[in-house]
């Protein structure tokens, strides 16, 4: 059943794993240099020297980082440091903000996502996003999950659609709780269930990368624990980039951690190393609670 769904997805022209990636763009030397391990061997996404401006104000400076297959990369840092801005660059959600301007290079499997030939619709189908506040559509649970497959034409008939909905809800760990109330409005679920519904909605279009923007900040500890478990399970199939304010959460769910500070990417490294032995003074200060 899964194979069939994946087969449908593979037919999409944009999903071209077999196209040879162009040579990765070199990181240019600048005055702000990120310490730690920025690159990985086989990245799914690479970003090189990314700057983002809102009008004339620079929100992030010169960020270069790789995202590996099947890893959870967490991004931490004090408020206003540009984590969310950077996250929103990865699926071009910043396009919706009139004043935002992005320079540098961001590639998904070797294709520049800001290239004129890149269809932002296909990009977002491959790089899904889960937001800070659960935002289910005011439709039924079923319709929420079926929304993505419908607009991308992933199901040829009703039974295929049913299957995709069930698989997605199961993967999001929500199926048992909602299987009897698929026709009830998604907005009627609890906060944690709503967020898992949003995750199910996101994985229903079978993306390669899932971006999560503080997905647990509006949830209670139990719901948070449930989502964290889910993130760990999802790693089998997806690359996940998660912005979080909770250092404990970053330590619990991620394999690599990136520390942002006032628009600069200060340090990247294995989560275990960053938390036990940070190399940069700012990272250490933040992790030990000296500010933030």
């Amino acid at each position: 059943m899964l194979n069939q769904k994946q087969a449908v997805l593979l037919e999409r022209p944009a999903k071209t794993n077999d196209v040879l990636p162009s040579a990765p763009v070199k990181i240019q030397d600048t005055d702000t240099k990120t310490v730690g391990q920025v690159t990985v061997d086989k990245p799914i996404m690479t970003t090189r020297n990314v700057d983002v401006y809102y009008d004339d104000k620079q929100a992030i400076r010169n960020v270069s980082i790789d995202i590996a297959y099947n890893e959870v990369l967490s991004m931490i840092g004090p408020s206003g440091c540009g984590k969310s801005t950077f996250l929103r660059c990865l699926n071009r959600m910043n396009d919706t903000i009139e004043s935002a301007r992005v320079t540098g290079s961001i590639e998904l499997e070797g294709h520049d996502i800001y290239d004129k030939k890149t269809d932002v619709v296909t990009l977002r189908a491959r790089v899904g996003m889960v937001f800070q506040k659960p935002n289910p559509f005011p439709k039924s649970v079923y319709e929420n999950v079926a929304y993505g497959p419908r607009i991308h034409g992933l199901a040829r008939n009703q039974s295929e659609l049913d299957e995709i909905v069930e698989t997605s809800l199961r993967r999001a760990g929500l199926w048992d709780e909602v299987k009897d109330r698929l026709r009830e409005p998604g907005t009627g679920l609890s906060g944690g269930q709503q967020q898992r519904l949003c995750i199910a909605r996101c994985i229903a279009v079978n993306p390669d990368v899932i971006l999560m923007d503080e997905p647990c900040s509006a949830l209670d500890p139990i719901a948070t624990a449930r989502i964290e478990e889910l993130i760990d399970e999802l790693r089998q199939n997806y690359s996940i980039v998660i912005v979080t304010h909770s250092m404990q959460q970053a330590a619990r769910v991620s394999q690599r951690t990136a520390y942002f500070h006032l628009g600069d990417l200060i340090e990247v490294g294995e989560t275990s190393i960053i938390f036990t032995n940070p190399q940069h003074k700012l990272t250490e200060d933040y992790l030990t609670g000296r500010f933030g």
């Binding site: 919706t96 619709v121 977002r124 899904g128 996003m129 935002n135 005011p138 929304y147």
Partner: peptide
């Protein structure tokens, strides 16, 4: 209609017109 609903739809890879027809107008 909250921006979060629009974002939710766009982030799933809907076009703007799909977002308007299927999310914004029903809401």
């Amino acid at each position: 209609v909250p921006q979060s609903l629009r974002d939710g739809s766009l982030a799933l890879g809907s076009t703007q017109s799909e977002m308007i027809r299927k999310v914004v107008l029903p809401a």
